[in-house]
């Protein structure tokens, strides 16, 4: 197991290297640059722009820029933002908790909603509820979730409790003006973006669970369990659910990573101050150090998530062995 872990961790090094080259190439291949905005400002002279270009090292050939950046990375320095001049790591770490919390909450909602729905649909195959679940999950899979988020915001903006307070806040991370951290207030702000971000997750879990439940229900050991006279809930919990969950466990880490790295749009819609929003901003402004830094962190998440998935797979399925 230890050898396997070490081997997998070593494999991440070339992965990170290749991704960094691709990202560096792509970001620089896009038209424009960080100083483009100044071209539309009549108060900034071409001399100033040339000086900024030099100060930021943007007048260097691309390979040199890349090597400089990589050299700094190896020394643990992700660089500084072109605009705020703050260390990239500081900016990323500032946003990391919000994104991880949102990702975890979305993953939790994916489990809480997707698994029961999928199992229920599988156990009642062909029933009205099964049809309804399949119909709605197909629609939710097709509809862009950011659009759905906007529609829900417009809908919820008109729903107030009797006290005059909105049913759910439609943006932000906390109520402005609250001095102390209020867990309930935080939870109220978290639930809507987490639910919308988790939609893709619970729809996926629901569909997986349904098909796995159906497959497991047809297995000999389930038939045997029933024929032994075991109670239905015992069969379902001990035999069906346990085995049907195996693929769900293996895709969980992938879903979590997907939710975190895909949070950019949902963070934008719900004004959630996370890493995704930072990345989107940096990409639009061509703040290369920030966007490369954020993607680098996302990549590390992805690689570790994949590793976790593989380990979990062996843990829940005893047939898997690590060599």
């Amino acid at each position: 197991m230890t050898r396997y872990l070490v081997r997998r961790l070593l494999q991440t090094i070339p992965v990170l290297f290749i991704i960094s080259v691709i990202q560096f190439g792509l970001i620089n291949a896009a038209p424009g640059g960080p100083l483009k905005a100044y071209l539309l400002d009549p108060n900034v002279s071409p001399e100033d722009i040339r000086k900024f270009e030099h100060d930021l090292g943007l007048d260097q050939p691309l390979p040199i820029q890349y090597l400089t950046w990589m050299g700094n990375i190896l020394r643990g320095d992700l660089g500084r933002s072109y605009f705020t001049h703050r260390p990239v790591l500081e900016s990323v770490l500032e946003r990391l908790p919000a994104t991880v919390e949102l990702g975890l909450a979305a993953t939790l909602i994916s489990y809480l909603v997707g698994i029961p729905l999928g199992v229920y649909a599988g156990l009642h195959r062909g029933g009205r509820i099964d049809h309804a679940i399949r119909f709605f999950t197909s629609i939710l899979n097709a509809v862009p979730h950011w659009w759905l988020g906007l529609v829900i915001i417009i809908f919820l903006a008109n729903i107030k409790l009797e006290t005059g307070v909105l049913l759910l806040p439609i943006g932000g991370i906390k109520t402005i003006g609250k001095e102390e951290f209020d867990p309930l207030d935080y939870l109220r702000h978290l639930i809507l973006p987490a639910f919308m971000l988790g939609t893709g997750g619970w729809v996926t879990f629901g569909r997986y669970m349904r098909s796995e439940t159906l497959e497991v229900l047809g297995q000999d050991y389930v038939r045997t369990a029933y024929s032994k006279g075991l109670a239905e809930r015992v069969v379902i919990f001990r035999h069906v659910l346990r085995n049907a969950l195996i693929p769900v466990v293996t895709i969980s880490a992938g879903i979590f990573v997907g939710l975190i790295s895909g949070a950019a749009i949902m963070e934008q819609v719900f004004s959630w101050p996370g890493m995704g929003r930072l990345l989107l901003d940096a990409t639009l402004k061509k703040d290369y150090p920030i966007s490369i830094g954020v993607v680098f962190v996302f990549t590390i998440f992805a690689v570790l998530g994949r590793l976790l998935s593989d380990i979990a797979y062996g843990w829940v399925d005893p047939r898997i062995r690590y060599d």
Partner: peptide, 14 residues
């Protein structure tokens, strides 16, 4: 769980 969190509204102040 989802609804509980939604209804955990702060005390009315306005």
């Amino acid at each position: 769980l989802v609804v509980l969190a939604a209804c955990a509204a702060p005390a009315p102040t306005a």
